[in-house]
Simulated assay, not measured.
Amino acid sequence: MSDIVDLTAAERTRILAKSALFDPPPAGLADGRRDLVGLSRAELAAEMASIDEAAFRVKQLWHWIYHQGVTDFSRMSSIARPLQRKLAERFVIGRPEAAVEQTSSDATRKWLFRFRDGQQAETVYIPDPVEDRGAVCVSSQVGCTLSCRFCHTGTQTLVRNLGAAEIVGQFMAARDAYGEWPSPKGETPRLLSTIVLMGMGEPLYNYANVAKAMTIVMDNEGIGLSRRRITLSTSGVVPIMDRAGAELGVNLAVSLHAVTDALRDELVPLNRKYPIADLMAACRRYPGASNARRITFEYIMLKGMNDSEAEARELVRLIAGMPAKVNLIPFNPWPDSRYEPSGKAALERFSGIVNAAGFAAPVRTPRGQDILAACGQLRTEGRRPRGQ
């Protein structure tokens, strides 16, 4: 057993070291000011110490930045004006620039956010059609390294990881747009139900920045989003799944999409490194998984490829005994894609078999297709600088 643990630890170290090659650029501005968004509490305390300010300023700033959503130091009424000016000289409270904003016919909203080095990533807000709330789908990388065959993002080379400030910043900029920050009277419209790390990139190949960002989001004195309302989606980076479960404990979604290694090797090339048996074992180990917090298996339905009744029964066998649900996702076409969505009859048969086995298997209604905001449709024109 110790050999297995050592190998897993070595693989985990290798993944994180490789990820560091794609780290984001420094957070400073050209004029030398530092962005306070994305700093941990300890880092924020260090910045305050650097300008001879007391540690209690951290709590004040944290409240204004993450609870109130303020971007202008002059609006921080609990901070004296001389200090407001001092802070503004040395720091900023940043947001990514919305280079493009689109709204779908179904009210889904998509932003193309541009970061300070000119790289871009997409973020989607999906409103709930019944309740006055929704979900923000956040990107973790510019591009992706996985090259999943059915995914538009997978056709784009990995350019770089997003930093914690850029990950948190997507959510904060979306909140700016749909007005979720508290009003001056303290009233807060509850428009958000979840954050889903299902945008561009593989979150577990950028674990350090994702973990830092989600720790900030979950801080009760700021945004205060419960871990039950955050879902991290992975294609199955098995060595990091255990760590994510232990350190973050957010909801887990797994991009499965096939029930045999032969087909999953084709659709999700990462499967060649971490095959289905290893992935299922990691899911069964995931801490906190229960009937109240089920693991979600994402399964994109591809006509004639993975939508047979036999495959539905094999899926049931794979997840047997696990607190799980299955999201059946009709394939969302994108330019030059070679797959077709499964027909209505195939969807209903597949869903019926999984449901009959005791697992929820809803067929997801595509949202934002007309603006290429649906699952698997996100992509930008980011390019890796020469020499990388």
Rank of each mutant, 00 (worst) to 15 (best):
M1I: 11
M1G: 08
E11W: 01
R12I: 07
L16K: 10
D23I: 03
P24V: 08
P24H: 07
P26E: 00
G32P: 03
R33E: 04
L39T: 02
A42D: 14
A42M: 10
M48S: 04
Q60I: 06
Y66S: 05
F73W: 12
I79S: 06
A80Y: 06
K86R: 10
L87F: 10
L87N: 09
E97G: 06
E97M: 13
Q102A: 11
A107T: 15
A107H: 09
D128A: 07
D128S: 14
R133D: 00
A135E: 05
S139K: 03
S139W: 02
S147T: 05
S147P: 02
L158N: 07
V159I: 07
R160D: 15
N161I: 01
Q170S: 08
R175S: 15
R175T: 09
D176H: 03
W181V: 02
W181T: 03
P189A: 05
L191V: 02
L191S: 01
L191K: 04
V210Q: 00
M214I: 12
N220A: 15
G224F: 02
L225E: 01
R228D: 03
E247I: 04
V250Y: 01
N251D: 04
D261A: 03
L263Q: 13
Y274L: 07
D278L: 14
L279S: 01
G288V: 08
G288N: 05
A289C: 03
S290E: 04
K303T: 13
M322K: 01
V326R: 09
G343P: 12
E348Q: 08
F359G: 02
A360N: 05
A361F: 05
R364Q: 01
A373D: 11
G376N: 05
G376C: 08
E381V: 00
R383H: 07
R384I: 11
